[in-house]
């Protein structure tokens, strides 16, 4: 098999194409939003400036160049590792992202761990006896997770903890895991819990369906007939084989979390990557939004590739082949 036609080469090429598409889309969309960085910075004071002043500012913010020049200088910069510069923060987008990306990744990892801890046992509980009270309970929790918006749950939780117990770790200055692990975990706990409540639901449902499905398969019936103890059957055979859809679903949710935690980041004042984009859009800092969205998209693509690899590792059928 030649390198050019190898499936991995093709996956990587297609990933590049996808990222280029995201780049074009975000570039065009940003330019279509009314207002520019000068208006975002100066508001109505822009009207009090002379044309020469405006021209000087356009040059300062790099808005004087043609759209093509802006696009290609951005893309060209990316290949040299230059993601652009934020005049607001006076930092490069790489530095900004180096601060914000770990926050979001930590949040996403914690969320996924929590959702798996909630979702998988609940799904198995539900599946252990179909249409029983346990199943009803599991389904109800899953339904609540799917139906309660995270901003409602988040605001309520934060307001309640602050008012009742004067407990609000997120009101303190944000610290990283390295600076102060104990406070960091407290600051991450509530937002991760809120997100996990929502994400546990699809994981629970996937687990339930997968377990029910696997259990009806021949080899499980055979194992049961052979007298494999039920507990061992449950974990070794059933869960082992139900892993594939669970991993797929987990990967999908993780990818989603990279850009989808904005609302929770906003409520709990977490300086994550979603908020970086949101502030960038408000300030019309094109380079910040473009490069950050691209970083998120890259994360999504990588997670998908990784899910694929894991999938190949655990799927007995793929392994056997």
């Amino acid at each position: 098999m030649s390198v050019l036609t190898h499936p991995i080469t093709r996956r990587v090429a297609s990933a590049f194409g996808t990222l280029l598409g995201v780049a074009v889309l975000v570039f065009i969309m940003l330019r279509a939003i009314p207002g520019d960085q000068i208006i975002a910075q100066f508001g109505i004071e822009t009207g009090d400036m002379t044309p020469a002043q405006i021209a000087a500012l356009r040059e300062y913010y790099g808005l004087d160049k043609s759209l093509f020049a802006q696009f290609f200088s951005w893309i060209g910069g990316l290949f040299q590792g230059n993601l652009g510069f934020s005049a607001r923060a006076h930092l490069s987008v790489s530095e900004l992202s180096a601060n914000s990306l770990p926050v979001t990744i930590e949040l996403a990892v914690l969320t996924i761990v929590l959702s798996l801890l909630i979702g998988v046992p609940l799904g198995m509980l539900s599946a252990s006896k179909r249409d029983s009270i346990r199943d009803g309970f599991g389904q109800l929790v899953g339904l609540a997770g799917l139906s309660i918006p995270s901003f409602l749950l988040g605001s309520a939780l934060l307001g309640w903890a602050s008012a009742k117990f004067s407990y609000n770790p997120n009101g303190k200055a944000f610290v990283t895991l390295l600076e102060n692990p104990w406070l960091n975990i407290q600051q991450m706990a509530m937002p991760a819990l809120v997100l996990a409540f929502g994400i546990a639901a699809p994981i629970m449902r996937t687990t339930r369906t997968a377990v029910l499905e696997v259990r009806s398969l021949d080899f499980v019936r055979t194992a049961k007939a052979k007298g494999v103890p039920p507990r061992r059957l449950q974990y070794r055979h059933v869960l082992g084989n139900a892993l594939v859809p669970i991993v797929t679903m987990t990967g999908l949710q993780f990818g989603y979390l990279l850009g989808g935690a904005i609302v929770v980041e906003q409520i709990f004042s977490l300086p994550g990557i979603g908020r970086q984009v949101l502030i960038g859009i408000e300030q019309k800092e094109y380079a910040v939004v473009q490069s950050t969205v691209l970083v998120i998209a890259l994360g999504f693509v990588l997670v998908n590739l990784l899910t694929d690899v894991v999938y190949r590792l655990i799927d007995p059928r793929v392994r056997a082949a």
Partner: peptide
């Protein structure tokens, strides 16, 4: 200290952080 949501600022003041 940047706390993007005004309601969260009130919470932080109640808890004595702000």
């Amino acid at each position: 200290r940047v706390i993007p949501d005004e309601t969260s600022i009130v919470s932080a003041m109640q808890a004595g952080n702000v």
